[in-house]
Nucleic acid binder design. Structure first.
Length: 347
DNA sequence: TATTCGTGGTC
DNA sequence: TGACCAAGAAT
């Protein structure tokens, strides 16, 4: 075992997080679900979603037998909904048991090399490397790897370091140790070098380059999309929703209909002023109803404020040009139900 | 290789 | 408070 792995593992044994929900019964199914939820998502955000999901779908068979709608409902609010769609699809593909090889796991939708490695190491005890954002940051600093992760050469170098440090003893514990180490000590900002178990041989630490590594992505210009939301409210205050296409944002979830700015409002209203489905608890539930009044968001801008390279960041925000007030679309319908001004939150 | 996908944490 | 990004994968 390398000095680095030994030190990180020892640190985790004494100070790491070892009582997380998915660390209790480390079955392939539970590890798989947790690793998918944890993609680009912090531990404390995942925790309640994991508990609810496992309570409802305790094993592979129950998930495979579930309706996709129910899977998405449990995922609502967690983001990156392709993960839920892929998870459900993969459960049906592997209905009789998850693969226990790298190639078999990577063949499942939503499972890449790093997630497959985590499942193999944690659930099966195989010597498999992982390379998530935490590991990239820790290894880039420890070995002084310059260059943006994303460049082929940098990626290859980091994978090589990750593999070299992965021990044949306790590979699952090491996988969780190195991720926890990156998340809690070798943080992006304010790394805890003073108590770091590997600071003595850290290249970045010796050179005072902790803040420079890993090399940050290039900042990119803002983009903007303009669309219009159609908010149909029935006499009870329920809001009409429709299911979004899988390949769009919030794919598979329910939201107020979204159309181009030049959409014919009258035609749209005529089309929907019949029996349609409504939702009492947007954006996922459906009910049948008949009469709606149509509210059209006034010159709403659907603005992508995030710089590309920083995934979604400030998110998708509805702006009202008159006063600049803004609100996430996910809260728009809820505010309409509450009788707030045009769906925009009031101070 | 670059973009897209989301919500919330952090400074 | 806006900017950046987190237990990545798909396209």
């Amino acid at each position: 075992m390398t000095w680095f792995a030994e030190r990180v593992l020892a640190w985790h044994d004494g100070h790491g997080r070892r009582d997380l929900p998915w660390q209790k019964q480390q079955t392939p199914y539970r590890v798989w679900v947790s690793e998918i939820m944890l993609q680009q998502t912090q531990v404390e955000v995942v925790r309640p979603y994991f508990e609810r999901f496992i309570a409802r779908f305790p094993n592979l068979a129950s998930l495979a037998a579930a309706d996709r709608e129910d899977v998405l409902r449990l995922w609502a609010g967690l983001g990156y909904y392709a993960r839920a769609r892929n998870l459900h699809s993969a459960a049906r593909q592997a209905r009789h048991g998850l693969p226990d090889t790298l190639a078999g796991l990577v063949a499942l939708p939503g499972v890449g090399r790093s997630t497959a490695g985590a499942i193999l190491a944690i659930a099966h005890g195989h010597r498999a490397a992982i390379l998530d954002g935490n590991v990239k940051r820790a290894l880039a600093r420890f070995h002084g790897v310059s260059g943006r992760p994303g460049e082929r050469a940098v990626e290859q170098t980091l994978w090589a370091h990750a593999d070299a440090h992965t021990p044949s003893e306790r590979p699952g514990d090491y996988a969780q140790a190195i991720m926890d180490f990156g998340a809690t000590l070798c943080r992006r900002a304010n790394p805890a070098c003073s108590i770091c178990p590997v600071a003595a041989r850290c290249v970045a630490r010796a050179a005072g380059r902790q803040a420079e590594l890993p090399t940050p992505k290039r900042a990119k210009p803002l983009r903007e999309r303009r669309t219009r939301a159609f908010l149909l409210i029935d006499p009870d205050g329920a809001c009409f929703l429709e299911r979004r296409p899988d390949d769009s944002i919030w794919g598979g979830l329910w939201s107020p209909p979204e159309r181009p700015l030049d959409t014919d409002v009258a035609a749209f209203a005529a089309k929907w002023n019949i029996d349609v489905e409504r939702a009492l608890s947007p954006p996922t539930a459906r009910h049948v109803f008949t009469h709606y009044r149509l509210l059209v968001t006034p010159h709403c801008l659907w603005v992508r404020e995030r710089p590309a390279g920083a995934p979604t960041g400030d998110g998708y925000v509805w702006h009202r040009p008159e006063d600049g007030r803004k609100l996430a679309l996910s809260a728009l319908a809820a505010n309409l139900l509450a009788g707030l001004d045009g769906g925009f939150a009031l101070e």
